[in-house]
Design a protein around this nucleic acid. Structure first.
Length: 310
RNA sequence: CGCGGGGUAGAGCAGUUUGGUAGCUCGUCGGGCUCAUAACCCGGAGGUCAGGGGUUCAAAUCCCUUCCCCGCAA
């Protein structure tokens, strides 16, 4: 069976490795073009590209996967099956029609909940206590195709988006493996998604990292851990954007307005009033500096009781 | 060559503009006080001031250079 693999970030890596180690014939790996990134604008390869090179697989990178050139390339590979996992571009019907047995996608949520590009982070932001992975036949809609297999996992109370991402990437590879076995056995069952139960959440946006202290303590803590370490949430204090990297809910010793510093003591820590309850900052990061313990930061940094994060 | 911030004791910082014996807070070690403590008092240890070169009677501080860390932007 000739398989084409479409993926770009870390999430797709375990699935690609699984395909190779299970002996599937991956004849082409498609990922997003190399982009200049990071300090100094250095060009870096995507995790999937790195993996494909290490495995000796041919890599294809198209700026527009819908272009005639890209479609022809895909058709020329005479694929039996396409597998996608966080590829990063929307596929066209012409592409989906190319492989004989269709296209299977690995999605990091329990569909039809959390359709969209960032299901892992959104699940935590919304305070979900469980999520999972769903394999599906890709259709032209956004995460709307018929579901194949699904597996749920609990979300840890303090688990970060990054940690959950890693777990679901591994789980995704495992579910994909089972899905492909069922496909070969002819036992695969297609289950249409119930539109009335569907939810959709958009791509992550930088604005999401700005904390709004009128939210509840739980919402704020969930947001900070959900976005970690992709984005570090921040709030403004005395003209500085200060990143609050890790927080936990705590008892408020006194009342204040949302964002007001209730405690700022090297021994007692840094506590901030929210719209409902209070949060204690565990890890903090100042402009130009590294992340550090909030208690340590109070030895040399000017935060006082009564200051207001906004 | 995208823009900018930073590297000083185990930790967090000041000192650099205007060169002149290395400072603060916390921790740590010892002692004291206390029913007791995250409290208080006294004392001590702990630094090649990121590395290299230069200027100078004298460099954390001025000049050149290398390395490392961080933020923004992509």
């Amino acid at each position: 069976m000739r398989i084409g693999f479409f993926g770009t970030p870390h999430f797709a890596v375990p699935s690609l490795k699984m395909l190779v180690s299970e002996g599937y014939n991956v004849v082409g790996v498609f990922c997003q073009p190399d982009r200049k990134s990071g300090r100094g604008h250095k060009v870096s390869f995507s995790p999937v590209k790195e993996t494909a090179i290490a495995l000796g697989l041919p890599v294809f990178q198209f700026e527009k996967i819908k272009s005639a050139e890209a479609v022809k390339q895909i058709e020329d590979l005479e694929l039996d099956l396409m597998i996608t996992a966080a590829y990063g571009q929307i596929l066209s019907q012409a592409i989906l029609d190319a492989p004989k047995k269709g296209c299977i996608n690995v999605h990091a949520s329990l569909l039809p909940k959390y359709r969209g590009a960032a299901p892992i982070q959104w699940a935590i932001i919304n305070g979900e206590t469980s999520t999972g992975v769903t394999t599906m036949f890709t259709d032209i809609g956004l995460d709307t195709g018929d579901m194949l297999q699904k597996r749920a996992v609990p979300i840890g109370r303090e688990e970060t988006g990054g940690e959950l991402y890693e777990r679901l990437a591994v789980l995704g590879a495992d579910v994909l493996k089972d899905t492909l076995e069922a496909l070969e056995d002819g036992t695969l069952v297609r289950t249409p998604q119930k539109e009335e139960e569907a939810t959709y959440f958009p791509m992550l946006n930088k604005d999401m990292a700005k904390l709004d202290f009128s939210q509840s303590a739980k919402q704020l803590v969930d947001r900070v851990r959900a976005l970690h370490p992709i984005m570090r949430c921040y709030a403004s204090l005395n003209g500085m954007d200060i990143k609050l990297i890790q927080m936990k809910q705590t008892e408020a010793e006194s009342a204040g307005k949302p964002g007001e510093v209730l405690v700022a003591d090297p021994k007692k820590g840094l506590t901030i009033q929210t719209g409902k309850g209070a949060v204690e900052v565990i890890m903090i990061q100042y402009p130009g500096g590294k992340a550090m313990e909030a208690k340590a930061s109070l030895l040399g940094k000017p935060i006082a009781v009564g200051d207001v994060f906004e």
